[in-house]
């Protein structure tokens, strides 16, 4: 074996580089990739966590295909994505765009927008759950009742539960998106705007011709990032509907919650793993599609 001192400087650099890289590599292999591979294997097995594992072939996937709850949950997951991502991005951009021009108390206002992002999702979900209660305890319904307006069933409704749960989730993520958007806005050279002003470009044209095109890398990042977030939504749903998780009648249940219930209350690990594989493929497909759609065309 070659002694360390006999190595060239270049070889020493390689040894050190790999030495430092080994820590995250080992971490990822043991903590991330190994369990992921196990989940793929488990998807083709039947296992109740206690007994022996049995090969089940494609049974889990066949059962998933025939399970009406799965399709409902699949649809819900995409509703969270298709309502949540555009709504949060438009809101975040609007706030960031205007906040960028505000000088008065700029730091304090930015901090206020960022605050919900730092709050625990569980605490926030429980507070919102209380907001949504019917009278005599719910904040929103008490206000409605005082004004003489009929109560709204927020959580205990098959149509309103999902948007009601989505609202705090959007609000919670807003602070982060605003910060990223503002960083993107600051990165656009001032000279472009000066040139636009000299040429007499309108405010709208400046926005659509300069600001948004130059924000594209930021937008791509945020779309992918928040899409993955909404596809994996769990904390808010679980905590706002603990008594009937994802209810009523599965109206607000996302895929991650179905996986959780299958695995840790029904102890049907193989079936849960099959659902995980489907979620993985969905996340992969959505992310790749977004990157492809928003790629830089030459």
């Amino acid at each position: 074996m070659t002694r360390y001192s006999a190595l060239t400087v270049r070889q020493k650099q390689v040894v050190w580089a790999w030495g430092f890289l080994a820590v995250p590599v080992v971490f990822y292999v043991v903590i991330r990739f190994y369990p992921t591979a196990q989940a793929f294997v488990l998807a083709f097995m039947e296992w109740n966590l206690l007994g022996t594992r049995r090969w089940a072939g494609l049974d889990n996937f066949a059962r998933l295909w025939a399970d009406p709850v799965f399709w409902q949950v699949f649809r819900n997951t995409f509703v969270y994505l298709l309502l949540g991502t555009p709504a949060s991005l438009v809101l975040a951009f609007a706030v960031a765009f205007h906040l960028d021009r505000v000088r008065f108390m700029h730091g304090a206002i930015r901090a206020l927008y960022f605050l919900p992002f730092m709050t625990s999702a569980v605490a926030m979900a429980w507070v919102w759950r209380w907001f949504y209660q019917p009278v005599p305890i719910g904040l929103f319904n008490n206000a409605l009742a005082t004004l003489g307006i009929p109560q709204i069933r927020f959580l205990n409704s098959t149509t309103n539960a999902l948007p009601a749960i989505l609202a705090p989730a959007i609000w919670a993520g807003l602070g982060f998106q605003i910060i990223i958007f503002m960083a993107g806005l600051r990165a656009i050279p001032r000279s472009y705007y000066e040139a636009a002003r000299i040429d007499g470009l309108s405010g709208w044209a400046t926005l659509t011709r300069i600001t948004i095109p130059l924000l594209k890398p930021t937008i791509v990042f945020l779309v992918v990032f928040s899409s993955i977030g909404f596809l994996r939504i769990f904390d808010q749903v679980f905590n706002m509907t603990t008594n009937d998780p994802g209810g009523p009648l599965n109206a607000s249940k996302p895929m991650v919650l179905m996986i959780y219930q299958t695995a840790f209350s029904s102890f049907d690990m193989g079936y849960a793993a099959a659902q995980t594989v489907v979620l993985f493929l969905v996340l992969l497909a959505v992310s790749l599609a977004q990157l492809w759609l928003m790629r830089d065309r030459p």
């Binding site: 409704s157 098959t158 009937d244 209810g247 009523p248 009648l249 599965n250 209350s265 029904s266 102890f267």
Partner: peptide
């Protein structure tokens, strides 16, 4: 056999009547 799943059956049964 699976208490939470069997409870859910009853929860859903009453919700179908009351909500739907």
């Amino acid at each position: 056999a699976d208490e939470s799943a069997q409870r859910q059956v009853f929860v859903d049964m009453v919700n179908r009547i009351l909500l739907e």
